[in-house]
Design a protein around this nucleic acid. Structure first.
Lengths: 348, 348
DNA sequence: TTGTACGCGTTATCAT
DNA sequence: ATGATAACGCGTACAA
C-alpha cells in the first residue's frame, strides 16, 4: 500500500470508499457533506466504508473545488507576550467553532518576516487574516489591501486605516488616565518608558502621556522619556538610566506591562522600593500584573473581548463578502489600580 | 473581475501568467519552481507577468499534485502557559526556515478537543504533527499511530511510547533534585502541589517526589500531597489548604512554575513570607521565575532546546520517510536556585 | 528550451 | 435517490 514514490501509505479517497460501498463517488461526497438527499441504507453503507478504510476527507481538493479553505492567518508580533498569547488562545478557539483552522505567524515585529508571512498566507489561499503586527508605516499592508483577502487589524492600526477594518483600544485615553492617576497622587516628575514609535499603540500612548503633561501644566522634559523598545533588556536599561539620573522621576509610566515588569526588576535591583521610592504603572493588564508579589497598577485592556470582536468581524466579512463598510471598533480602557502607585501624596 | 459566484476578485493562475507572457504554462511552472532549464529571456518575461498580475501560486493545487503540503500541526495543551508559548515561538520560527507553515491547535487538555484537532489535521493533510498535549492514556493517539502521518510527542509521553518519537525531560530526576535541595536545606515536611495525574509529566514528577521521600527516609504523608491541576485557582486553594492545616509543611514543591506562582500568591495573601515561613520551589523556569520580585527557585528545562529538537526531528522524519527508528530524546533537568528556598537550615 | 496532456481528490451540474 | 462527468490549478512525463 505505497504511493508512486514509495514514500508512504496511500490515503484512501472517496473513490475507494465508493468502490467499497458499491456506490458512485458523488454519493460518497453527499454523505460526507451531510446532504439530505441520500437514502438511509446507502448512507449507512458509506459510513461503514469510511470507517473501515479510516478515510479522512482531503481539504486541499475540497478547497480547490469550492474556492474556500476555511482557514485564516493570525499574524502576531510576539506570541511570547501574554497579551498576544491570550489573543491567540481566544482566536483559535472561536475560529475552531466556526470551523476555521489557523495558520500561526510570529513576526517579532520584523517587516521582512511580515512580508514573508503575508506572501505565504496568500499562497495558502486563506480566507482571511487577523493582523496583530502592523507598523504605522507599513508597506506590507498595501499588498494585502489590494488583494481580495479580507483582513482585520488587531490592537495596532496603520497611518491610513480609514478604509481598513480594525479593532483597537483607545490608547491615548489609556495613557492619559495612567498619567492623570499619577498626577492626582502628587507626582510631578513622571517618566515614560516607551515602546517603538513605529507602532500606533506606542504613538498613541506617547501622545496620551504628552497630552496629560500639557493638561496638568507639567513641563515637557525629554530626559524623562526613554525607549524600552518592547524588549526586556532595553526596558531594564532604560529604567536603570532613569533611576540613576541626577534628577530621577518619582513615577514611571511604562508603555506595556512587560516593560513595566522589567522596570520593576531594575528598581528592585537598584535597592529601591515601589511605590515608596518610585511609583510605577503599566499597560495591558496581563495576568502577572495582579500577582501578590507584583500588584502592578496598569491600564487594563480586555484582550479576550478584543480578540472576540476581531474574529467575529472577520468571520462576518468572509461569509458575507458583498459591500461592507470598514468595520472599525475602538474599545475603551480602564484603570486597574493596585499597589505600585501607592496612595499617599508625594511631597514635592 | 469577479468569479463565478460573484464573490470576489478572481485570482490569477499560471494560465493567466502564461497568456500574458506568451508562453505555455509548463514554462511558468518551471520559472516558479526555479528550474534551471529555462532561457533567461523567457524567465524575465514570466517574472514580469507574475508581478503585473500580482500572482500568488496556489498551494492547494501544488499540494494535490505533489502530495505534500509543507505544513505541520502543533497541538498545544495551553498556549497561555509561557512554557508552551516559548515552544510555539521556536517551532514556528524553525518550521518557517524549513518552509513549513504551522496550524495552531490549543486543546486545554481536553481529549475531545484533541480528537477534533487530530481529525482536522488529517483532513488538512499536514506532513507531520508535534503533539504537546498527550494524555498518559490517550485514545486519540492510536488514530495517529495507525496513520502514515509522522508525529513527535513533546514534553509529555504516553503510557506506551516505546515505538513513538518523543522529546521529553527527565521529570522524575527533576523532581528528585528539587526535593533533595529542600531536604539539604533542612526541610523535613515537604509538600507537593501536583498537576493532573493524567499526564506523564505529573506522574514522573510525583514519582520523583516520592522517590526522594524514600531516599531520605521521610514519611509518606498524604496530607502533604495536594492537587493543583494546572489551574491558578486550584493551585491557590491547594496552597491555602496546606498553609492553614494543623501541621503545615515547611516547604512546597509545585509541579510547575505557574502553580508555584499561585502558591506564592496564596502564601503572601496569608501574610506569610517566602522563604522564612515556607520555602517554595517550582518546575519549568519560565521567564517570570527570575524576576526580582519573584526569584523563584525552580527545576529548569530548556523549552527552546526541546522545541528545536522536536521540530528538527520531525523535519528529518518527514523528508526521509523510509525506515527510521523511533527518535527518543530525554533531556536532563538542572536546578535554578534563586531565593524562594532560602539558604539557611530550618530547625526541626 | 519549450509545449501538450494527464491526473491529483473533490464538489457541482446535469442526467437518469 | 443516485450516477457520470467537468472543473478547480498545478507539476511532470513525454514529445517536439
Amino acid at each position: 500500500l505505497y504511493d508512486a514514490k514509495g514514500k508512504g501509505v496511500i490515503m484512501s479517497t472517496i473513490k475507494d470508499i465508493a468502490r467499497r460501498a458499491g456506490v458512485s463517488y458523488a454519493t460518497v461526497s453527499r454523505v460526507i457533506n451531510n446532504k439530505s438527499n441520500v437514502a438511509m441504507a446507502t448512507r449507512k453503507k458509506v459510513l461503514a466504508a469510511i470507517d473501515e478504510l479510516s478515510y479522512y476527507r482531503n481539504d486541499l481538493a475540497r478547497g480547490m473545488r469550492t474556492k474556500k479553505t476555511n482557514s485564516i492567518g493570525l499574524i502576531l508580533a510576539d506570541i511570547t507576550n501574554p497579551f498576544y498569547a491570550e489573543t491567540a488562545k481566544t482566536i483559535v478557539e472561536l475560529a475552531g467553532r466556526y470551523d476555521y483552522s489557523l495558520f500561526l505567524c510570529n513576526t517579532n515585529n520584523d517587516l521582512n518576516e511580515q512580508k514573508k508571512y503575508i506572501n505565504i498566507l496568500m499562497q495558502r489561499k486563506v480566507d482571511g487574516i487577523i493582523f496583530a503586527s502592523v507598523h504605522w508605516i507599513d508597506p506590507t499592508i498595501e499588498a494585502l489591501a489590494l488583494s481580495a483577502t479580507p483582513f482585520v487589524l488587531y490592537n495596532r492600526c496603520a497611518s491610513d486605516s480609514s478604509f481598513l477594518n480594525y479593532v483597537v483600544l483607545d490608547n491615548e485615553e489609556g495613557a492619559f488616565l495612567a498619567v492623570e492617576h499619577l498626577y492626582n497622587l502628587g507626582h510631578r516628575r513622571i517618566a515614560l518608558i516607551s515602546g517603538l514609535h513605529a507602532f500606533s499603540t506606542d504613538r498613541e500612548r506617547t501622545n496620551g502621556y504628552i497630552k496629560a503633561l500639557n493638561e496638568f501644566g507639567l513641563p515637557y522634559d525629554e530626559t524623562l522619556m526613554v525607549q524600552g523598545e518592547y524588549s526586556g533588556k532595553k526596558s531594564f536599561d532604560a529604567a536603570m538610566k532613569l533611576i540613576k539620573s541626577e534628577n530621577p522621576p518619582t513615577a514611571i509610566f511604562a508603555s506595556n506591562d512587560l516593560m513595566a515588569l522589567s522596570a520593576l526588576d531594575a528598581i528592585m535591583l537598584a535597592g529601591l522600593t515601589v511605590p515608596d521610592d518610585i511609583a510605577l504603572i503599566g499597560f495591558d493588564d496581563i495576568a502577572m500584573a495582579s500577582h501578590s508579589a507584583i500588584q502592578l497598577s496598569t491600564v487594563s485592556q480586555d484582550s479576550k473581548m478584543m480578540a472576540e470582536i476581531a474574529i467575529n468581524s472577520l468571520y462576518k466579512i468572509i461569509e458575507n463578502k458583498e459591500s461592507h463598510l470598514p468595520l472599525q471598533v475602538v474599545l475603551k480602557p480602564k484603570l486597574s489600580i493596585r499597589l505600585t502607585c501607592g496612595s499617599k501624596k508625594i511631597s514635592k
